[in-house]
Design a binder for these strands. Structure first.
Length: 803
DNA sequence: GGCCACCCTGAA
DNA sequence: TCAGGGTGGCCC
């Protein structure tokens, strides 16, 4: 008898272990580790992952599995193993680890229904529920709940008249398209054609088409080509001249785009020097992590492309991670242009079905390269030759909910398995990575000059306090205004960047400064243009915008946008001739609008591109000669130990958008704190000095990369409970770790209340605590088991956001 | 997560 | 006595 070890789709501590199921004879040769199957679990049916197959089991009361959900494993051996590693290192449930590795489309959907028991008729049922079963076989549980039928249904079920059934459903179907093709050869068709009635002109045309094109083709396209109707084709199928068939097709998100084929470019000396050790690592199959530190515009992408080329030639596969790829269609173009159909693209802009299809291309080994955001690191390749992480410093590589993994760590783990190189690329590496490169843990490769020797743009830092003193109260300094005017006259383009925290806007009273907060969470409500309402992003609370301020009754209460709208208005006043494209949450909400706006800008339909964070990346247009940062320091004062690093990275990144081609570029940074090192050094693009300064501060305050962090967050509806329990945990941790570790807390989280639950935390800073994982596991065991009257504990190892 | 068995409570 | 509601332990 064969037994399947199954990780069941129930994310709790108690079920976070394999359950054993008998594999019935009929499935014995089908079921393999890595497949999804449907199993009975208590009274329900649920999805599970087969992790292993054994000959026997310790468990006495075994049940049989119900059916497989896959014909071949969706997780290969390596990924199953990687799942265990993920569980261990991020302390998440196994089921979360496995689900994170698959496209969302493969996550099961569950339905609970009530139907007549076998042999029962609707007539036997009480009046109240009879109509529900007279014309329908089954009733949706949700509907029964809504109509208040549950207790009646339960009574009837107890009498054996009804039964409750559970259904496990797939989220998406493979896309099926009707194909039509000839059943005879061209010559035979010609003969058959003569037999058709004289007046069936359309049918003859269709046959003619197949005489010329003997291959089956999509029905939709055939109808377009031949101008025939579906009925015509149907008639020919009835005459047994043509066949119809449903075939699986991939949804193609790039259907209406063509990619110009590109060829390897000659490398500069610096590029050639950098690529050499990478190629050596590929060739010798030796795992190594490279930090490719190259200033903006130094040609990192060409190094990626030619390394991948080498990997493909060796018959291996490549994974390329790009931060939020939908933001950089240009990046996709570069990979599709070089490797064409060998590239699959995975990013958040695709629909679930499209993502699933791209994933299937990888699984079926129809592609060799994956370009994608964070989760693409789990691409189901089996012979990886290189993993590349572009913009390595980006915080979006860290997932903020379970499993709380960092794509960089997963990349290194997989690369160790395949003995292949990892390339981390950035113009402003994270301190963690650069420190590792300094310690020779990573192999540092430097590109210190731009390609075609373009100089880095000249940067002007403008002290806005001076402007104010000089009587300029506008948000544009005199210098920036002059330069904008100058570019418009010359017909060149400018980018204006508003460095604002977050992407959201809030409602505030201009008289007393009152901000409308969520009643359930300690956070301001976010303004939504649709219906002019305010929403809480954490608990879903919604309300109207008040007409007068609830605090001071002033009528001057209104929403503060990301600020871009205000900037646009002011631009209209001072530079009425300027054509402006604004990019923020309001203008890029709909799918594809982002790309469209960028395209318009590229085509020269505007002089100024105005936006928030989202325009900082990947913009590479030849005509941009001016970049202006309106307020460089808004992000600097956030309570986050990485705020200086983020400011420096962002300013450097933005400055790099100017003058990447023939025309030289200039950058203007406006700030109220020009003396701050992260702004000053971004001005001179001096990463090395910034690194030194920032490292000193990190060392002083016991932050990464000198110390590791682990964050324990507790939530409960009573403030007192949460404080007391956090206190206990702080004590426990303190008693268990060495005196080298620093334990902070209990302290309120940066968002102290969400959905009426108070949030307290304990932050552990440590250098070497071999027992820490064990200690943290113990805490989770203790608290997740006891359901302590609703106390929830979550742990983030190496957190990025300390909330 | 969802279910059921179990307990307690309160009202007839 | 039983419906109603809250809780804890189990699910191969």
């Amino acid at each position: 008898m064969k037994i399947a070890n199954v990780i069941v789709d129930v994310p709790t501590k108690q079920t976070d272990r394999p359950f054993d199921y008998i594999i019935p004879k009929e499935w014995e040769n089908v079921i393999q580790p890595g497949m999804r199957i449907v199993v009975p679990f208590g009274p329900r049916k649920i999805q599970g992952f087969v992790t292993d197959i054994k000959a026997g089991s310790e468990v006495k009361q075994l049940r049989e599995m119900i059916e497989p959900m896959d014909l071949e494993p969706v997780l290969n051996k390596e990924l199953l193993h990687l799942g265990e590693w993920l569980t261990e290192t991020t302390l998440c449930f196994k089921i979360f680890a496995y689900q994170a590795m698959l496209p969302a489309a493969l996550k099961a959907k569950y339905e609970k229904m009530v139907r007549l028991a076998p042999g029962m008729k609707a007539e036997c049922l009480p009046q109240k529920i009879k109509p529900y079963f007279t014309n329908h076989k089954s009733l949706d549980w949700e509907e029964a709940l809504k109509d208040g039928l549950v207790s009646v249904l339960q009574q009837e079920a107890a009498k054996g008249k009804l039964e409750v059934v559970y259904v496990v459903k797939e989220r998406v179907r493979k896309k099926q398209v009707k194909f039509v093709g000839p059943l005879f050869s061209a010559a035979e068709l010609a003969v058959e054609k003569e037999k058709i009635q004289a007046n069936a002109e359309k049918q003859k045309q269709v046959l003619d088409y197949f005489i010329d094109h003997p291959n089956p083709m999509e029905l939709r396209k055939l109808l377009q080509e031949t101008n025939a109707s579906a009925a015509t084709v149907k008639a020919l199928v009835a005459k047994k001249l043509l066949f119809e068939e449903e075939m699986e097709v991939y949804r193609n998100p790039f259907e209406h785009r063509t990619f110009e084929h590109t060829y390897p470019l000659p490398l500069t000396n610096a590029q050639a020097a950098a690529i050499k050790p990478i190629h050596a690592s590929i060739e010798s199959q030796k795992h190594e992590v490279f930090l490719l530190y190259g200033v903006t515009g130094s040609g990192k992408t060409e190094i990626y492309l030619q390394s991948i080329q080498k990997v493909i030639e060796k018959g291996q596969e490549a994974i390329v991670l790009v931060p939020e790829i939908s933001l950089t269609p240009q990046m996709v173009n570069r990979f599709k242009g070089r490797f064409g159909d060998l590239v699959a693209v995975l990013h958040s802009g695709l629909s679930a079905g499209e993502k699933y299809d791209e994933w299937r291309k990888i699984q079926r080994k129809e592609v060799k390269v994956v370009v994608g955001a964070r989760s693409a690191i789990f691409a189901p390749f089996e012979n990886i030759g290189i993993i590349i992480i572009d913009e390595e410093h980006e915080t979006s590589y860290k997932q903020e909910d379970m499993p709380r993994y960092h794509a960089r760590d997963v990349a290194i783990e997989r690369a160790k398995t395949y003995q292949c190189p990892v390339v981390l690329g950035s113009a402003t590496p994270s301190l963690e990575s650069f420190a590792r490169a300094q310690k020779k843990v990573y192999h540092l490769l430097t590109l210190s000059s731009r390609m075609n020797e373009r100089p880095l743009p000249a940067v002007d830092i403008i002290d806005m306090r001076e402007e104010l003193r000089a009587g300029n109260r506008s948000m544009f300094s005199r210098k920036l205004f002059d330069m904008l005017k100058d570019r418009i006259e010359k017909g060149q383009q400018s980018v204006l960047f508003l460095n604002k925290r977050g992407h959201s806007s809030f409602v505030m009273c201009r008289d007393c400064g009152y901000v409308v907060n969520c009643p359930n969470c300690d956070i301001s409500l976010t303004y939504h243009r649709a219906g002019s309402r305010m929403k809480c992003h954490y608990c879903g609370y919604e309300s109207h915008i008040p007409k007068v301020c609830p605090e001071c009754s002033s009528e001057y209460i209104r929403y503060f946008g990301t600020g871009t709208q205000k900037v646009e208005e002011e631009l209209g006043k001072i530079l009425p001739e300027a054509r402006v494209i604004r990019m923020d949450v309001d203008t890029t909400g709909r799918k594809g609008s982002h790309e469209r706006l960028l395209k318009e800008f590229q085509e020269g339909k505007a002089d100024i591109l105005l936006g928030t964070q989202m325009i900082a990346k990947g913009l590479d247009f030849p005509n941009i000669t001016l970049v202006g940062v309106l307020s460089a320091d808004t992000m600097l004062h956030l309570p986050d130990f990485r705020s200086s690093e983020k400011t420096f990275q962002l300013l450097t990144q933005v400055s790099g958008r100017a003058g990447r081609h023939q025309l030289p570029g200039e950058v203007v940074i406006q700030t109220y704190t020009p003396e701050h090192y992260s702004i000053e050094l971004a001005g001179t693009q001096n990463y090395d000095l910034f690194y030194q300064r920032e490292m000193m501060i990190r060392k002083l305050h016991h932050y990464p990369p000198f110390y590791y962090l682990a964050l324990i967050t507790l939530t409960h509806e009573h403030l007192m409970t949460v404080v007391a329990e956090t206190e206990k945990i702080v004590h426990y941790v303190r008693s268990q770790v060495s005196n080298q570790a620093v334990i902070l807390g209990p302290a309120a989280s940066p968002i102290p209340r969400i959905n009426n639950r108070y949030r307290y935390q304990c932050l552990i800073k440590y250098k070497r605590e071999p027992n820490l994982t064990r200690i943290l596991k113990k805490i989770l065991d203790q608290y997740q088991k006891e359901t302590k009257n609703g106390l929830l504990v979550s742990i983030d190892i190496n957190p990025f956001i300390l909330m």
